[in-house]
Structures are given as C-alpha cells and as structure tokens.
Design a protein around this nucleic acid. Structure first.
Lengths: 344, 344
DNA sequence: CTGAAAGCGCTTACAG
DNA sequence: CTGAAAGCGCTTACAG
C-alpha cells in the first residue's frame, strides 16, 4: 500500500496521524495511543494495535515533533551559546554537549555571542520564543542581567567555562585559581625568577581567578612584581599582545617566564617571542591554558593546563537534563573540575 | 500593569495572545493581526492597534514560534550536518552558515555525522520530524541513498564541501582538481622530481578530484609514479600516515615532495617527517590543503591551498534560502569556488 | 476496548 | 472596523 506513488515530484504533504486513522478506520486518539506506546493496560486490542503500526510504517509516517512540542510544552531542544564556534575550544565543547544531549533525545541549537552582551540577550530571547527547554551558556562579561532573568524565571540553565558569583545557578568550570597557581609554581620550579602574565583586561571571575593564582604563587615565593602583569583587550588582541611582549622584552630584560592566561593569547604571544628571537625553553619558559595542535610543531615541548573539555560538556549536559526533568540536583551549584598541568 | 509580580519563583506559564486579547477585551484574531503587522488596509483602528501593542509589551509577550510554525508549516530552522564540529574547518563553516542564516531569520541545528552513513540517515530523519525547512550537509562517503531521498521529496538541500555527481542537487565546493593540480605544479616548479601524495583511501569525488589533479600535473611533467601515492584509512589515520611516511622515507629515498590531501593528514604527516629528521623546505617540500595555526610555528613557511570557507558557508546558505523561499535559482547546480595556493 | 471533544498557541479565510 | 470559527498535528482526560 504505497499512497504516494505519483507525487514524487511535488514537495509532499507529510502523512499525519489523521491519515492513518482514516486509512485504518479508527480515531486519531487510538492511533496516537498506539504509536506513542501508551497502550499499557490493553486499552487497544492486540490486532488493532498491530494493524495501526503496520499501516503507519507503510505510509512512512513520521510524527511532527513541532505539534508534539506545542502540546507537551517541551521542545526537546536546548540552546547552546558559545563565544565563537570556530574556536576549537568551543567547537570541542559543542561536540560533547551535542553528543550527550542527543543521547537523551535533545537537539542542540548552537549560537555565537561573539562575546557581545547584546548578542547574548538577543539570542536568549530568540531561543526562548522557540521554546527551548533550557540553556547551556558561556556567559559574556557584562551579560549578568540577561542571565539573572533566566534564573528568576526558573528556566533550566547551566553556565559553562565562566560564571557570575552573585547568581544562584549551576556552573561547570575548572578550578582556575588552582590551575594558575600550579602553572606559575611550575615556572618557579623551573628556576624562573621574573614570571610575567599575559591576560585579558576583563573582569570575569575566571580571569580574576587565574590572575589570583598567578599572583599568590609568586607572592608565596617572594617573586611578585606588579609590572610583569600585562593586560590585553579582546578586540585588539593581536596588537596588544605584540606590544606587551615587545615591552617585556625591552624594559624587562630579566623576564624569564610567561604564563599565558588563554590559548589564544599564547598563540600570538609565542609567535611574537619567536619573532623577537627568544628561544622558548631556554631564554624564556612559558606555560599556557589548553593544548593547541600547533605545539606539536615547536622544537620544544610547551607545558599547558589541560582543561577536561569532554567532562565539562558532559557534566553541563547532565545537570541541564536533571533541571529540565526536575530531578533532585544536590547542594552543589558550581562544579569545579580539576585541570591538570601537562609537562610532558 | 505588571501581571506576574508574585510568581517570580515559579516557572511561569508564558503569556499568550489569548491573555492579551482578554486583557484588552478584543479577539485573539485582532491581536494576532496587529502583532504580526498584517494590519495593512486599516483593518484595525489606530488606537486599538496602539493599545494592543502597549499591553503586549507590558505583559512581556513573546510569541510562541512553535505554534507559528505548526500553523505555517515553516519552522524557520535548518539542519546543518557536518562530519565533526570540533574540527576547525567545519567549525568555521558552521560559524558562517549560522551567521548568514540568522540574518534571514533562521536558526541552525548543527549535528555531527562523524563520517558515518548510518548517523547521517538518523539525523536527517530526526531533523525532518522536527520540521526543519532545509538542510546543508557535508555528505558521508556512502550516504547517497539518504540524500537521494531528500532530493526526491524536494526537500530544500545544499551539499557542501563534497557531493554526489549522480544527484541533481545544489552543491558548493572548491575546484579540487584545479587546486591539486596547481599545488603539485608548484612543487614541480620548486624542482621536486619525486612528489608523493598522502590521501584518504576513499571514493568520494572531492578526493578523487584531488588525486586526479595531482596525477595529471605529474604526468604532464613526465614525473608520474604510482608508487608515490599512499592511501590512509580515516579510522586508523595516525598509524597509517606514520606508516606511509616511514615507507616513503625508507623505500623512496628520492622522494622530495609531498602533497597532503587534507589538513588533518598534513598535521600528522609533517610531525612524522620532523620525527624522522627531515628538514621541511630543504630535504622535502610539502603543500597541504587549508591553513592551520600550527604552521605559524614552523621555522619555514608551509604553502597551503586556501579554501574560501566564509564564501562557501555564505553561498550555501543563500542557495538554501532561495530554495526554501522558492526563488528562481539559475541553471548552475554545482558551484565550484576557486581555491588559492598561498605560497607566502 | 474505542471515540468525541477539548486544547496547546497561533493564523487565516469568512462573515458581518 | 472587528469577531467567531476552523485548522495546523498532536495528546489527554472523559465518557461510554
């Protein structure tokens, strides 16, 4: 029984529950019951049930999830807001979020905020009007208000990679203080005495924590010097980094170590060090956040802080699903995973 | 007029057109008309119209796009299927597709096929049941049947990066033959006489074209040697590449150039060359597809074929939108963009 | 064991 | 100028 023989060349109207009901000679309610597997206590007879399934299959019935969603109030879709999907860190994060959510039957709509608060707000509202069941968000620097609104409205939400300390909301990130402390400590142990920090000029807690880890490690070793902290702007990153490295090279000829607060900063920073003739691992030691494929091509191994991206993505997804499905969540709001320093 | 004062702590039922109608004392039809801007020929009085807008705003009304979609049959959502979102090539592609589709009011659901035909089929069906308006797909090697079905059903669809020659469907990709020819020609001009090719063992047209470009360039120069073509498996890429390079180094000591058919192959390949003590640009010259940040760290510049990813993503999006909105499309089905060889 | 009816939140003829 | 009604494709009490 092929009902769509001659229509192959037209964009076909898809077959609905009604068409099946009509074909079998039964009500749509019965069809729905059978097809959704809610025919528990033998409500529909075995034979009828079989017949309905058979016809549905023959007619190549695909349920319209939009209609199901409208009915149930659940879209089985979540929104993932990242700063930039073309950045491998976020790409990988998206990969694992997607994988984990799909297992639970959710689709993921990914959008880029490009670090803009305005964009983030727009996208949240856009996705809400699409009735997403929840959000996983890498929040922007000054977007606290938009996030607070989600929290107030009890929208299922997990922040990832960064968070706002004032908000009562689930967060998944690494222990940035500990990671930066350990990385700095490593440089000290490598006999660096003048360790610089290159970091975003930015008030986000995860950056502040990294700076605090760096600062404390140096203070604990009696080596702290405020002048060695160089801040760069996200928008003018490249020129600021080049300027900072150049400055350090000229004014601070005793500089012998650098902690790069992000991988992106490290990429440009290391390039500039090489341009200026520094021999990494000899004239200057460096550590950075996150591995980059590029490091494999360096003549010397570049130590880095390994963020467990897969675990971050998976944990965030699991927390979100629990929120959506109203499962008890446990006390802990912020989940700090441990980042490992990889020294080779 | 704030109607939701005390409910802030409950997950609120969102305000609907009905609530507004009730509040203003008018029918839902009128509210809909005003709010969708379809109140052309003064159907609704100016004052009433203003009042409705005002109340809608005060009640913080957000339309439910699911309901709109069910009604209109348009979800304003498209599916983007890539091989792996954590790969920067696809991440960047996704970035531009997303950007372009968003401009036109479409959301993008991104999914990973992981190069699996089965996965691709599953995802297409999943997304169809979510009523996506169209697809942009990086097709898998043997997934022709799933794609053919979309074509038969006249689902708006654009293939990207790869295509199936037998199908009448829009495609956006680079001229792989020309690119590979030019790259190989460049190696010959650099005085290489024994140019190897490292390529996936794979029957996809884009790979075949790359091989054909390579082969013809060498034949035209009278330098072709079948033995210099080494095929690697996607699943066992690393070991196969290492094996291939090692083989070339041992058995083909006269090998003096390599064309890497993809960036991923190049990354491992170059690493292995370095491990074996080859000096790139001296003992052996290489060219590969796509730039990688890693190349900035090489002591010598690595020539690469620059694929115009942004243009590919944008063009694919525009073609898809035209299909969805039934705009005349022009004769050309396959759009081959020119890839540029970057020699520094 | 099965169906008629109401409803999810919208839009769109149709009638007045 | 405005409203009642039907419908998009489902599900879910309710009634029999």
């Amino acid at each position: 029984m092929l009902l769509c023989g001659g229509f192959m060349m037209e964009r076909m109207k898809r077959v609905s529950i009604k068409d099946i009901a009509l074909a079998v000679g039964v009500s749509t309610a019965t069809v729905s019951l059978v097809l959704t597997g809610k025919n528990k206590n033998g409500r529909v007879s075995k034979e009828m049930s079989e017949k309905i399934k058979k016809v549905a299959h023959e007619m190549n019935y695909q349920p319209n999830r939009l209609a199901m969603s409208l009915q149930s109030g659940r879209s089985q879709t979540i929104g993932l807001l990242v700063a930039d999907i073309s950045n491998p860190f976020f790409g990988t994060l998206a990969f694992y979020v997607q994988e984990e959510m799909e297992k639970a039957g959710y689709a993921v709509i990914i959008m880029n905020t490009d670090e803009s608060d305005v964009q983030m707000e727009r996208m949240i509202s856009l996705l809400r009007s699409r009735q997403v069941d929840g959000f996983i968000i890498v929040p922007t620097e000054f977007g606290e208000k938009s996030i607070a609104q989600l929290v107030d409205n009890r929208i299922p939400l997990v922040l990832i990679d960064r968070y706002y300390p004032s908000l009562q909301v689930n967060g998944v990130l690494i222990d940035n203080y500990q990671a930066a402390y350990e990385a700095t400590r490593y440089l000290i142990d490598t006999h660096c005495e003048r360790v610089a920090l290159l970091i975003y000029e930015n008030s986000q807690p995860h950056m502040i924590e990294r700076e605090r880890g760096y600062t404390n490690a140096l203070k604990d070793a009696g080596l702290y010097d405020e002048e060695l902290i160089k801040r760069v702007r996200y928008k003018y990153m490249d020129e600021d980094i080049i300027g900072a490295i150049t400055w350090l090279a000229q004014k601070r000829k005793d500089m012998d170590g650098i902690l790069f607060a992000t991988n992106t900063i490290a990429m440009t920073g290391i390039k500039q060090l090489l341009n200026l003739g520094f021999r990494i691992g000899e004239d200057v030691h460096v550590v950075c956040f996150d591995k980059s494929d590029a490091f494999d091509f360096m003549p010397v191994f570049i130590p880095y802080i390994h963020q467990p991206i897969a675990n971050m993505g998976r944990l965030a997804s699991q927390l979100l699903i629990k929120q959506i499905e109203d499962v008890e969540l446990g006390e802990e709001l912020i989940h700090k995973l441990t980042a490992r320093l990889v020294k080779k």
